[in-house]
Design a protein around this nucleic acid. Structure first.
Length: 349
DNA sequence: CATCCACCGGAACTTAGGGTTC
DNA sequence: GAACCCTAAGTTCCGGTGGATG
């Protein structure tokens, strides 16, 4: 947008974390579920609070903002508020943030404004209205009373976001029981083909056609272990580099150089973090031509680990390992549920 | 249709390692 | 440094399930 005519970037905002796309890919189930939970707001009845959890880069924040924005556009009686609890961990900061978002009048923040007064302010602003409150990184809240404050506001629906499914285990039991009826939605890591779709979509809106090839998008997708944020970040970085160095296209070289950035995003697990059995599983799948049935994989693992003098693992542990490998996109699994077949993702870099 | 087989995953338990308290 | 607590990983147990088999 703001770039001159020679630019290869059409709209850099599309390639940033904050951007909310006009359609959500590969999260239909979750989208419908959240819509159903908060829809009662439109009819003035009681919605369900939603707890969204999943690894970084699985689209949690994007989805929450998307749904909240969608609802807001339906009715002028609905407003939304977004707070990152890592940046605003205290009860006062969170409520202040919400008050700012929902109040039409400017909030006068004089020193010593009591938190309860802010809460009253929110109540007054929301009279006759309904509000979707997004609490990102909800596990970083310092004082969980703020959750209680928000629960007591009948016309507020909370979308609580965290990486861990256990994020709310430590909150006060009274609050937890009030939240027991909330919807619990997991966001699994994207598969590489899903990442490819999302990157293709973003490149269409963000870049001039032909700047990045399909193969290059696959290359990025195969490297991020299901972390979409990392994938989009890499695409932005290489686009900016191409732009700066006045290339007309992104080169493979640029992508390879930017891949180490992924490490910043991948807190949870990397190849180096795999234990010997998990590495052996990867070797067996690779040796089997990239695809193998679950039962055969376990038998081969038992055989091979015994011959290497490694300790044996029980079948339940094996299932835990394969589930983890799938979760972190080291493996794909097909035939979901029973009789699964494991396969390598398209490309390993 | 009944039974068996191979597999799946939740729940409860055990164990090991690390941190904290007195 | 002993006693305690907490957590994560691995194991045991077990009920459930769809396809194969008789």
């Amino acid at each position: 947008m703001s770039y001159p005519e020679m630019s290869i970037i059409r709209d850099i905002r599309v390639l940033t974390e904050k951007f909310i796309p006009n359609r959500i890919l590969h999260r239909t189930g979750q989208l419908e579920a959240i819509r159903d939970d908060i829809k009662p707001l439109l009819e003035g009845s009681v919605p369900r609070h939603v707890f969204i959890h999943g690894n970084p880069g699985t689209g949690k924040t994007c989805m929450a903002r998307y749904v909240a924005g969608e609802l807001e556009s339906y009715s002028s009686d609905i407003v939304q508020s977004y707070t990152n609890c890592w940046e605003n961990p205290s009860r006062f900061r969170i409520l202040y943030n919400i008050a700012k978002d929902v109040s039409s009048a400017p909030i006068i923040h004089r020193k010593g404004t009591p938190t309860d007064e802010i809460l009253e302010m929110i109540k007054r602003s929301l009279e006759g209205k309904h509000c979707v409150v997004i609490l990102d990184e909800v596990d970083k809240i310092e004082d969980d009373r703020v959750l209680y404050d928000l629960i007591t506001l009948q016309n507020v629906c909370m979308l609580m976001i965290a990486n861990s499914s256990t994020a709310l285990y430590n909150v006060d039991s009274r609050i937890r029981s009030r939240l027991a009826s909330s919807d619990n939605i997991e966001f699994r890591p994207y598969s590489s083909s899903e990442i490819i779709d999302i990157l293709s979509d973003r490149s269409e809106w963000g870049l001039i056609p032909g700047v990045i090839t399909g193969q290059q998008i696959e290359m990025i997708a195969a490297s991020v272990s299901g972390d979409c944020r990392a994938a989009i970040d890499i695409m932005r970085v290489v686009s900016e580099e191409a732009e700066r160095s006045e290339h007309e296209k992104i080169t493979d070289d640029m992508i390879e150089r930017s891949l180490p950035r992924i490490e910043m995003f991948k807190k949870e697990l990397s190849m180096g973090a795999l234990n010997p059995h998990q590495k052996l599983i990867m070797e067996i799948v690779t040796g089997a031509g990239g695809t193998i049935d679950s039962g055969e994989l376990f038998r081969k693992l038992s055989e091979l680990s015994a011959s290497k003098g490694m300790e044996s693992i029980v079948d339940r542990t094996f299932r835990n390992y394969t589930n983890k490998l799938v979760k972190y996109s080291f493996l794909n699994s097909s035939g979901d549920g029973r009789w699964r077949t494991f396969a390598l993702p398209k490309k390993q870099f």
